[in-house]
Amino acid sequence: MTPTSAVTLRGVTKSYGPRRGVLDLDLEVAEGELLAVLGPNGAGKTTTVEIMEGYRRPDRGTVRVLGLDPVRDRRRCVPQLGIMLQEGGVYPSLSVGEAVRLFAAYFANPVPQGELLEMVGLSDRVRSRYRTLSGGEQQRLSLALALVGRPRLLFLDEPTAGMDPRARLVTWEAVREQRRRGVTVLLTTHSMEEAERLADRVAIIDQGRLVALDTPAALIGAGGGGVVELETVEALTPEGQAKLSALASVERAQEVAPARYLLRTASPPQALVEVAALLRDEGPQVLRLKVGGGSLEEVFLKLTGDTH
């Protein structure tokens, strides 16, 4: 345990029934680091974050957040945290400005409203009620409320889920700015792209266990071949996808985005041939078919292989 560790989990276990929760998790987040927690739905990402935030008390194990126990030392810990929930968290009939002023009143030294809204790109929405905002705007207001107290440690639970590309870029820039200022950031995400672009290190969690923890570059390097990436003009039907998975050389096929598939295979050249033949006969038309996703997606697919 280094003295500059912002978060330390040691042997943390929390279960809610047989297939949910986290198991014997060891994780350390260094001060000033941006750690992305990646994993499929239900892998335990939110549970992990909520244990750090002090919302959940683990069944076993120790949790240290900024040197404090986030449950027992709540009153000392919580003013130093910025928390963005996966969704909601704001009174729906408050305006953006009213919500920011309210949360600013919880902190001794809040960020001025103008600067804060500038940072998340909501300066022109001050008078709009929360319920009239788009999903992406609601998320960015939630981010602003997480930042208003100048946190030392920022928790972002799927911050860009459901955002349009422009909102996503604004959010990424705001997160990078926090990182530049020395704020420790822990973010969960489904998006490999997000993890690759933002994170110093990536933790991959699957079925409540930590299955990988390294820099994006190291994880990609370790990933190697064995994956074929396929993009089609339109998404495959369920039958089409079943046929894809049933090909002799394909061990597993996963739709990672609409009309985009990663296939795990022992023999990439063989898989290319079989996939091309299948789609020539059955459609839809192939946009792209190549060996290696060349990204975290591959690593992710390999490491979280047995979920389905």
Binding site: P79, Y91, L102, F107, A108, N109, R150
Partner: peptide
């Protein structure tokens, strides 16, 4: 990073919270 992050004195958060609860 400047100094330790502290909660506002409670009368200030009470005033803001009361105002918002009444508004709602």
């Amino acid at each position: 990073m400047s100094g330790p992050q502290l909660a506002a004195p409670w009368p200030r958060s009470l005033r803001a919270q009361l105002r918002v609860e009444l508004l709602l």
